[in-house]
Structures are given as C-alpha cells and as structure tokens.
Nucleic acid binder design. Structure first.
Lengths: 268, 268
DNA sequence: TTTCGTTGTTCCAAATAATGGAACTTGGTT
DNA sequence: AACCAAGTTCCATTATTTGGAACAACGAAA
C-alpha cells in the first residue's frame, strides 16, 4: 500500500505524471531539465518520455532536443473540452451575462479539490478564447470555489476540504476547516457565495453554483470586480441575473450531456 | 518486434487506448459498452478504467454507472491546445482572412499522418469556437493534407505516405503513392495545393502550408468553397492573401513557441 | 588532435506490476 | 425463489518495469 506519493497507479500513473510535467512547462523542454525536477531515475524518465512520444502524447523535436505536448493530446483536448467542460455549453450565456453586467465573468469547475477556470470574459476586451481559462486556483478562498464546495455532497465535500491548504492570502482568508464550514453553511442558505478579498486584496466577487435539477453540482459562475469599482452591495444586486444565467447553463448542460435523462422527464 | 497492434507500449499504451475510446464516445459510456468493443479482457479493461479514474483522467459517475473524460484531462487539454496547436496564435489571423475572403477557412495540423483541423471559420456564422475543429480527416486527398505532406522532410513524408489509405472518394482522388508523389512535387513548385474535388464531390479548395523561416512545416491553412459558388481560378486569385496570412501565422508561432530562437536572429 | 565534460542512450538481472480465467457479488427481472 | 446480467474481486502465472552502471555522441577546451 503506497505510502508517500499521492499518485500511485503503477506505470500509468507515472507516465501521466511526466505528461503533466511536460505540459506544465508551457513550452518545449529538454530531457535534462525534466530530469532535474523529476522524482524518477534517469533511465525510467527516459523510457516514460519515449513511451509518451511513441504514443504521440508528446512530440520530440530532434533539432532542439526538446519535448512538447503532442498532437494526440491536442485531439483528446478537443474531445475532453467539449465533453467535460461547461465552456462550450455556457459560451453564449457568458457572452450575454458579461455584456449585461460589464464586469469580469468567470466560469469554473472543480478539479481534484481545486478550482479550474474553464472560461472567462473580460468585459473590456472582446472574446479571447483561452486567455486565462485553464488556470487553476484554490477553492477555499475564491467565490467560485466556495460556491462549489458548499453544494458538493457531504462525503465529497469533506474529502475536498481535507485537501485545502488554508494558506492565509489576506486578513479575510478563512484558515480553518471549522471557519470554512460555517461559511459554506451560510452560502448554502443564501444560495450564492461572496469573495470578500479573501484571495487577493481589493478583489471581490459574487459566485453562484451551477446545479442540475437533482442538485448535482456542475460548476460555478462569478462576477468579479475591484473594490475601487464596485461594492459587495452592488454585486449582490446582480445576483438574480447571475442566478438566471447559472440556471440556463445548468439546463443546457443537462440536455447536452445527459440526453438520456430526458426520457425520464418526458416518459413514465 | 510487435506484430499486430499499432499501439504497443505496454500498459501505458493500453491505458491511452482506453482513454481514446472513452473520449471518442463524446458522452458518458457504460462499462459493458466499452467491453463489447474492446480488445482487452474484462478484468484488464476494468483495471485500466479504474486507474484512469483514479488519475482523474476519467470521471466515473456512480449514479449512472458511466465513464466520461475527467477534469485532469480537461486541464491538460487546455495546456496542450495553447502549446501545440496553432489555433490560439492564428485566431486573429483567421478572423481577418475569413472576413476578407468570405469563404470557409480551415486551419489544420498533422496528427500521425492524418489531418487534424484545429480551427475553422464558417464565413456565414460568427466565431464558433469548437464547432468542427477537432475533427480528423485524410491527408492524401485534402488541400491542407497535401500541402502539409508536400513540405514535410523526406523521411517523415515517406513514413506518412505509407500510412495513407488511398481510398477512392471521388474520380479525382489520387489512389497511389506514385500519383500522390507527383502531385506533391507540383505543390512544392507551386507553393500551394488545390483540392480538386478529391475528397468530396463539389468541394474545392486552395491550401497553403505554414512554414517557419527554416522551412519547418507547422500546419496548413485553406480556403474552401463549393463548385457552385466558386471556381479554382477564383480561388487561386486569393493565393497571395492566403500566403500572407500563412506567413503571418508562421511568424507569430515562431515568436511564441521558440522565443529562444530570436537570440539567433538578433545576435551573432 | 586529444582530452574532458556534459547530455543522452542502452543493458540486464532483479524486482515488480500486469494479466485474465474463473469465481463471486450485486441488483434487478421473470 | 430462481434466474440473469452487469460489475467486481482473486491469485498464480507471465510479462514488464526498474535503475545502477556502463556506454555512446557531441561539443568545448586544452
């Protein structure tokens, strides 16, 4: 029974580790660089890289002697994105919301107890597909994070909360499971979450979970502003609009991803 | 040594196979369904699915007993897309070109001797991110495919050509290595490729390879039309514009993905 | 040209993990 | 209650992975 590593899962786990590592660089990277930071011995890392390259998950550039993400991963990327991210479904809704409220809008999902931003609208700029989307952030001190945690089934919620780092970013950050639990309870009652400068000073937001009609949590949606431009009160005034958008996204997502469930609703 | 399977590479290869299979469904899928079409025995498939689920590459929905792509894959997806696809870099250029020529524009890359469409503009509709992008197609009978093959280094080209199926889609399809070789030679001389209804009757296109200044082939760009709307002659008139766009994409891509090479250009 | 140093690649016996047929459990149906 | 299908676990066998160390390739310095 594995002790140290969080990863495990034999060879496949290791290979995926390496894949993550290479992808994490964001640009072509040399063997030696990877080796430095790798927990795996030279020969092992070497073979893992070879395997992944064979499989087209990585691409090896012989000229520069570098590894980068491969085309097969790009192909998978498209599939995974359309299937498991709310982004394609929510796209039009985000456009509309952002145009209406004229503030930054984020769409997030939960990735292993962390927040994964899958889409974003900047209010100022026009549509920029993959700008900040794809970034990850902490769950316990962001609006979307708390909104999602709050509406997770108990078992999963407790597992997720145990994985939070509770690093104190600002004076407002909740830094204990107890404090966060109380906050989540309040969020459940209210139906939406605030970020009161808990992650970054001067940045506040209101966040709404995206829930299916059988209370399954799909993600969260938020409107963000700086304290110079807006107050929590003003943000709260946007709550109904935010809620409507979240509901619309939930409906579309449900129709799109669980088309079979329509039968249950229609039939019987 | 491996004889039958194209995949190979031990457990990792198998796991990635399964990942592809699940991703290929495009929606949540049950174990039994996967088993039916799988080459792997029950227990093996089962364990592979478990591993991938543990790793968050797949997500298991206990309620519906289905597997779907997981959040970790989505995160990787984003990374791979921004890193290895030309789409983010080419985005603005595609917008401009499509607005100017008012025809369908495709951006493609080579994925294991096949064409992978990484972005598309429909001329009629506005920007629709992931519409048809992500699809794959044959290389030997499409404009972008031939343009890319033509400018591949010999060794790689021969390897890629050996992998073509040479299925005859229309009367115009090139159906042998010899015929295709001659065509590629002509493309190299001309600098761009045509699709003369080789893949689909009534569909023609002009395609331009995207090449870095040291002749490295990054992808291809095409303008497509139906024979009812446009002739090859008319498409050819757009060649300079197409070439300019391709060159611009190449420059941006080079700056973005190989920033270190700038030193070589500046220094010395 | 030779030597050294760095970086990448290969070997192989030992250690470990994957395999898959079959048995078993679970939940629903006749 | 008996049956059936879908999913899960077992375990001895088999095949793969492991990683220290030796080896090649290349370039830079002597």
């Amino acid at each position: 029974m594995g002790r140290g590593t969080v990863t495990g899962d034999g060879t496949v786990g290791k290979a995926l580790d390496v894949l993550d590592q290479v992808a994490g660089y964001g640009r072509p990277v040399r063997f030696a660089t990877l080796l430095e930071e790798s927990v795996y011995p030279k020969a092992t890392l070497y073979r893992l890289l070879q395997t992944l390259t064979n499989q087209n998950m990585l691409a090896y550039d012989a000229e520069h002697q570098t590894y980068a993400t491969g085309m097969r991963l790009v192909r998978l990327a498209h599939r995974a994105w359309t299937q498991s991210s709310l982004a394609p479904v929510a796209r039009a809704h985000l456009d509309r919301l952002s145009a209406a409220v004229r503030h930054t809008v984020h769409l997030a999902q939960l990735d292993n107890a962390q927040v994964l931003y899958v889409d974003k609208r900047n209010a100022a700029q026009p549509v920029e597909m993959f700008s900040d989307a794809g970034k990850v952030g902490p769950a316990y001190c962001t609006g979307v994070g708390k909104a999602m945690l709050a509406f997770l089934p108990v078992a999963e919620r407790e597992k997720a909360m145990a994985q939070q780092s509770f690093h104190r970013f600002t004076a407002q950050t909740y830094t204990s499971t107890a404090a966060l639990s109380a906050e989540l309870e309040a969020i459940r009652e209210r139906g939406y979450a605030f970020d009161r400068e808990e992650h970054e000073p001067g940045i506040i937001c209101i966040a709404q979970p995206i829930l299916t009609d059988n209370a399954r949590m799909l993600g969260a949606l938020s409107i963000t502003g700086s304290t110079q431009d807006i107050t929590l009160k003003e943000l709260e005034r946007l709550a109904p609009q935010l809620a409507r958008t979240a509901a619309a996204i939930a409906m579309d997502a449900q129709d799109w991803r669980f088309p079979d469930m329509k039968l249950q609703r229609t039939g019987t």
